[in-house]
Structure formats: C-alpha cells, structure tokens
Amino acid sequence: GATAVSEWTERKTADGKTYYYNNRTLESTWEKPQELK
C-alpha cells in the first residue's frame, strides 16, 4: 500500500539546520518523524 513517507520533506533553514516539513498537514518539526525512522 501507500506509505506516509512522501508527505515529509527534509529541508534546511537559512543557517543550515535540518528540519522536516509535511506537505499534507503543513506541519514542520525539528525531530525526525516516525514515518522516516
């Protein structure tokens, strides 16, 4: 079946920190989402 992984995108802030952005829920998080573990 379909997985939720594609909803999350790994992004970088202007100062180079990595965060994760969810295209479906429009939420962002510093922690790696469960779906990516």
Results as ranks from 00 to 15, higher is better:
30 W>A: 05
36 L>G: 08
17 K>L: 10
33 P>Q: 02
20 Y>D: 01
12 K>R: 10
34 Q>L: 12
11 R>Q: 09
22 N>I: 00
22 N>M: 00
18 T>C: 09
27 E>N: 04
24 R>F: 12
2 A>C: 15
26 L>A: 10
17 K>N: 08
30 W>P: 05
7 E>V: 04
8 W>R: 01
35 E>W: 05
19 Y>H: 03
21 Y>C: 05
21 Y>I: 08
2 A>W: 05
24 R>K: 12
27 E>K: 07
37 K>W: 14
13 T>E: 04
6 S>Q: 12
5 V>K: 12
21 Y>M: 04
17 K>D: 08
34 Q>R: 07
17 K>S: 07
6 S>M: 10
17 K>I: 09
37 K>S: 12
36 L>T: 08
3 T>W: 04
24 R>H: 09
10 E>F: 02
18 T>Y: 06
25 T>Q: 01
13 T>Q: 04
17 K>F: 07
19 Y>V: 04
17 K>T: 09
27 E>Q: 11
14 A>F: 07
4 A>H: 13
7 E>F: 06
21 Y>L: 04
7 E>I: 04
25 T>N: 02
22 N>F: 00
6 S>H: 12
29 T>R: 14
35 E>R: 04
36 L>N: 09
14 A>D: 09
10 E>Q: 04
28 S>M: 15
14 A>K: 11
4 A>W: 04
2 A>F: 10
20 Y>I: 00
34 Q>M: 13
10 E>P: 06
36 L>P: 07
30 W>D: 06
13 T>L: 04
1 G>A: 14
33 P>A: 03
11 R>L: 15
9 T>L: 10
15 D>K: 04
26 L>Y: 12
17 K>M: 09
9 T>E: 15
16 G>P: 00
22 N>A: 00
8 W>T: 02
33 P>R: 02
37 K>V: 15
29 T>Y: 06
12 K>F: 10
10 E>W: 03
10 E>H: 02
31 E>G: 04
1 G>Y: 09
33 P>F: 01
24 R>L: 13
1 G>P: 12
4 A>D: 13
33 P>E: 02
34 Q>Y: 10
35 E>A: 09
6 S>Y: 09
31 E>M: 05
7 E>D: 15
5 V>E: 15
5 V>A: 14
22 N>D: 03
1 G>V: 13
32 K>G: 03
7 E>Q: 06
29 T>D: 03
34 Q>S: 10
34 Q>F: 11
3 T>L: 11
29 T>G: 02
2 A>L: 12
35 E>V: 06
34 Q>E: 15
32 K>W: 05
35 E>L: 07
29 T>I: 07
26 L>H: 15
11 R>C: 15
33 P>M: 02
27 E>P: 00
13 T>A: 07
8 W>A: 01
4 A>F: 06
2 A>V: 12
15 D>E: 10
3 T>S: 12
27 E>Y: 03
15 D>C: 14
31 E>W: 07
2 A>P: 13
8 W>K: 00
18 T>R: 06
30 W>M: 08
35 E>M: 05
2 A>N: 12
18 T>Q: 04
7 E>A: 06
14 A>R: 09
21 Y>D: 03
36 L>M: 11
29 T>S: 11
18 T>G: 03
4 A>N: 11
20 Y>K: 00
19 Y>A: 01
15 D>L: 06
4 A>R: 11
34 Q>V: 13
24 R>D: 06
11 R>K: 13
6 S>I: 10
15 D>T: 07
29 T>K: 08
23 N>E: 15
21 Y>Q: 06
12 K>N: 07
21 Y>E: 07
30 W>T: 08
12 K>P: 02
18 T>K: 07
12 K>S: 09
29 T>Q: 13
31 E>F: 10
10 E>D: 03
22 N>E: 01
28 S>H: 09
25 T>P: 00
27 E>G: 03
